[in-house]
Design a protein around this nucleic acid. Structure first.
Lengths: 152, 152
DNA sequence: AGAAAATGTTGGCACAACCAACGTTGGCTT
DNA sequence: AAGCCAACGTTGGTTGTGCCAACATTTTCT
């Protein structure tokens, strides 16, 4: 024990932005690991979820709803199309667009992912009793709500 | 208004891991922007803060305290050494180590950064009254405390 | 008709967070 | 004392996320 090897500096330990970050990292580690069991990443889940809830849509619309950039959406759709979890077809009514539609296999995959995700949330929130979980959700919702979609 | 252009899917909107992520993104955007005014990134701030609070230390020890990987620490120390905000000298008592020491200029820079960071926190937490802020900090602290340092 | 906007796509960038490998050096065991 | 193992700094990767710019095509607005 040369130097006491103290833990994180004061300044960082209670810094809200840093705490939020570390929590997010933890959450991501857990969620990514869960999704990896199905060979999928977060973008894939978000896209499938958006597709199932809103029905077929253009890539641009899906991007707006999921917060995925247009350019990243291309790759994400490519991935899922390869696995036949969705279909990409040109929109006859607007030839700029592709209409993306979830397949039956996609729906099945999504159901699996839902289960994995739910388990991951539970692991993430393990230290908090139900009341506190809701509390956290409320606080975070207010935060992200206030700062809105400032993607610049 | 072709398609209603609805906002994020249900599944994603209240997903704790996603909320945490979005909050973290917001925080990072604000903090990064603040730090950029001083030409600095988060790693730089963390390193300077650790140095000032614990005094001179080896890169490895600093890495443990800040959560920065050894290899990334090299680059971070390089950056700050170039700007003469810290000094890197071989440890005479253990020739494997470098002893990193903050300079007077480093301390001055850190003071500036502290102000920038504080303002950023305030902007980040703007929608929450003081009581809720503490509440959030507590919840997050419990979360990250429970999941510990599992960097695996 | 002509200007402006939207769409998909390619290609790039930055950053955080990792990991593996290596040579050097130190400590520990036997 | 020798030998092994651990720690250290360093180099050089990789991955995922979130961006942004540019472009051709197509649609919409004026």
């Amino acid at each position: 024990m040369d130097s006491p090897e103290g833990p994180p500096p004061q300044r960082l330990r209670t810094l809200p932005s840093r705490l939020t970050n570390q929590a997010a990292q933890t959450a991501n580690r857990i969620v990514d690991q869960a999704l990896a069991q199905a060979g999928v990443r977060r973008y894939h889940y978000a896209l499938l979820a958006a597709l199932e809830e809103y029905g077929p849509a253009s890539q641009a619309a899906l991007g707006r709803r999921t917060g995925i950039d247009r350019s990243d959406m291309v790759a994400t759709v490519n991935d899922l199309a390869e696995r036949q979890l969705l279909e990409r077809a040109p929109d006859p009514e607007d030839r700029r667009r592709n209409i993306v539609t979830i397949t039956a296999a996609g729906r099945r995959q999504l159901a699996d992912l839902d289960r994995l995700i739910a388990a991951a949330q539970d692991e993430f929130l393990a230290p908090l009793p139900a009341a506190d979980r809701q509390n956290l959700i409320d606080l975070l919702t207010r935060l992200v709500g206030h700062h809105g979609d400032k993607r610049n």
